[in-house]
């Protein structure tokens, strides 16, 4: 996961921010308890959002207490406790992270490869544990990952097809939340569209690198002026950005339709903030290149 789904802090009330942070801390602790100390570093805002939606779908009040943690050893912070049952979110996170690392080893540059190789042993045990808990999800994500490799090999894939694997993963993850019938269908579409958002944003984020390395990126293939060898010309970059803007806007517009129909009530303000402001803010940062400079993975929320 990439950390693209996060709240827009300036528009948050302090009480909302406290809850958001408590969920994040609770997840971090839950992962530590369940899967071992090292896995905690892999937590991202995306998973915090998943946990928040899962709490909201189950209509659970947050039960939290003051705890110490390694990031804040001298100050106790609010932290969601075990009663919230964040196990689905943390197990899903494990499965995702494991596959992401494997994917990095397969097709990233030397530096990422080495980093992923070092990290993988710490995650294979936890992955097996999580996959045992959620076998169906592990299978779905595995097959989506395979599809991604296939698509990246065929040069002609358009944007919609390229989004499909990530979108499918998110479909499986959100579809696995409790709730049957129409609610399940809505959650699945919600996940699908979020996956699209993540993929397109990530593609735009990596555009220069992918162009340099000749890696697959659907945004490099959109029709328009031809690009120079080393770096993308300003004109070409403008074309790509405006195409990405349209795709993102279409995706978010549709996401909002589904979100309204989902009609989640608990933690509504925080979810509203993430959906309506956070996502656009992240995309805006990625678009202007500000996102990369910041701590991308967002290992911890700093107050």
């Amino acid at each position: 996961m990439f950390g693209y789904i996060r709240a827009f802090k300036p528009y948050m009330r302090v009480c909302q921010y406290d809850i958001y942070k408590a969920v994040y801390c609770g997840l971090c602790k839950d992962m530590g308890r369940r899967f071992g100390f090292f896995t905690r570093f892999a937590l991202s805002y995306d998973i915090a959002f998943l946990a928040l939606v899962s709490l909201s779908v189950r209509d659970k009040t947050l039960s939290a207490d003051m705890q110490r943690c390694i990031a804040h050893p001298f100050k106790k912070t609010m932290c969601a406790d075990c009663k919230n049952d964040l196990s689905y979110s943390s197990s899903a996170a494990m499965i995702l992270i494991y596959h992401k690392l494997k994917d990095d080893i397969a097709d990233k540059g030397l530096k990422e490869k080495a980093a992923a190789m070092c990290a993988l042993p710490f995650f294979s045990g936890p992955y097996r544990k999580a996959a045992k808990r959620l076998p169906k999800l592990a299978r779905e994500i595995g097959s989506a990952m395979k599809q991604q490799n296939d698509i990246e090999r065929q040069a002609s894939a358009g944007t919609d097809l390229a989004c499909e694997p990530t979108a499918r993963m998110m479909t499986a993850i959100f579809g696995g939340l409790p709730g049957g019938g129409e609610k399940k269908a809505l959650l699945e579409r919600f996940g699908y569209l979020l996956g699209r958002f993540i993929y397109i944003t990530d593609a735009l984020d990596d555009i220069q690198e992918d162009h340099r390395n000749g890696s697959f990126n659907p945004l490099l293939r959109i029709p328009g002026s031809t690009a120079e060898k080393d770096s993308l010309s300003a004109d070409r970059l403008r074309e790509i950005r405006s195409y990405a803007d349209d795709s993102i806007n279409l995706t978010l517009g549709e996401l909002a339709e589904v979100y309204v129909r989902l009609d989640l009530t608990r933690y509504r303000e925080i979810l509203d903030n993430i959906i309506y402001l956070g996502l656009k803010n992240t995309y805006g940062n990625v678009r202007s290149g500000r996102f990369k400079n910041k701590n991308k993975r967002g290992n911890h929320i700093d107050g």
Binding site: N249, L250, G253, A256, E257, Y259, D272, I275, Y276, L277
Partner: peptide, 15 residues
Amino acid sequence: QMNRQRSGYMNGSPV
């Protein structure tokens, strides 16, 4: 409907 979304409209958004 799609043109509206394409120009940045999000249903239910306070913005």
